[in-house]
Simulated assay, not measured.
Amino acid sequence: MREITREMENMEPDGAMFDLLTGTDLDSLCTDQLVTLAILARKMKSACEWAELAVLKRVDDTTELAMAIKEPEQSVARRKEASGALDVLPRLAEQLRCGELDFARFDAVRERIRHLDQPEQITEVEDALVGVAAGLNRTQLCRKTTGLVAKADPEGYETRCQKAAKERRIEFSPLPDGMAKLTWTLQATDAHRLFQQICADAKALPADDRTTDQKRSDVLMDRVLGNRQQWNVRTYVTVSIETLLGLTNDPGQLAGYGPISADTARELAMHGPWRGILLDEHRHATAITTDTYRPTALMKEFTRAQSGGICTAPGCNRPVQEHDHIIPWPQGDTTPTNLQGLCVRHHHIKHENYTVTRDTNGTTHWTTPTGRHHTTHPTQH
């Protein structure tokens, strides 16, 4: 059996890769080799997903197929609908075939471009994604695609946001063992503000035997029952001055969520303090006005603007919870260029055995204990 090396991660999926995956003694591998094998398994899975879509595209009788694979016909029909994206998004489909993109991310793009009527609009979105999609996780890719769709079809995006707002609802689902689930669908800005407040309420509680999730559930019930009144969290939204003045309908950016409609961003701007953020030629935040908060609070606000409110560790979708000196203090200064927003877990891990550096353009480099290198980029506004 061939030795497992990192060079194999650049291979295209084939029969030899399958034989390697199924014939290797996993107990004999080191951590770095196991990571490589996991990457190969995902590449092989993506290639098989592409093959299934290619087959579905050519099968007319979904009943026949559903019976054969023991799947509900509705599921097969939905999958067949997704197979049309092989032609609509040919370059991303090729990345799926080569194992560079998995089906979940490919389908996330398909879901977001399906309302675009003009082929040139879809091409514009794919042009912007084809070079970066493989390096983004699903949540990051969803946000970026939503922003690109809004930019390609701003009027249509506004209309769809207004229509979607009418679909707000609450659903009740029974669960075993005396439990039930409430699902609340509402506008992103309202949901984000409510969740931030729930987290703040839970964090303010004294330490006891409850988990964080249990505390969040309890404080939400308190608010529903009217036992808590004060709201003390902020919602951070970035919007261009052109959109603010109504000259364009480019979407705003809700920290921790992603693109929101121009109308919603303008409405929020009317109810809170403003900051001026200076952007560089890549539309990355480089400076912020200093007329309201003391420097430490302002620096925290700036790191949130840089990261879109999301932990800057590679692949993480958690909200910013702590602010970290990239070059540890006191060797590193407490300045915006040396600060990054992280979740609690990645803040702790970073100080254990991970190395982090940042380029002058805001690109952050993480080096793992096995020597793997990953990069994250500042939010493009």
Rank of each mutant, 00 (worst) to 15 (best):
R2G: 04
R2V: 14
M8H: 09
E9K: 09
M11G: 03
G15P: 02
T22C: 11
D25W: 02
D27T: 14
L29Q: 02
A41C: 11
S46R: 01
E49A: 08
E52I: 12
A54Y: 11
V55H: 09
V55Q: 08
A68K: 13
K70E: 14
A82S: 11
S83F: 02
G84T: 09
A85F: 12
L86C: 01
V88R: 11
E94K: 13
D107K: 11
D107H: 11
Q118F: 03
E126Q: 04
L141A: 04
L148F: 00
A152C: 08
E155G: 07
C161I: 01
K166Y: 06
L182T: 04
T183L: 12
A188V: 10
F195V: 07
Q197L: 05
L205M: 15
P206A: 14
D208S: 11
D208F: 03
Q214I: 07
V219A: 03
R223W: 01
V224L: 15
Q230A: 14
L244T: 04
L244C: 02
L245T: 05
L245E: 13
T248H: 03
Y257E: 01
Y257D: 00
G258K: 02
G258H: 01
I260L: 04
L268E: 02
W274G: 09
W274E: 10
R275T: 07
G276T: 14
H282P: 00
H282Q: 15
H284A: 09
T286Q: 12
T290W: 07
T290R: 14
K300T: 12
I310D: 00
P314Q: 00
R318C: 05
D324E: 12
P336I: 00
N338M: 01
G341S: 05
G341R: 02
T355F: 02
R358V: 14
H373R: 13
T376H: 00
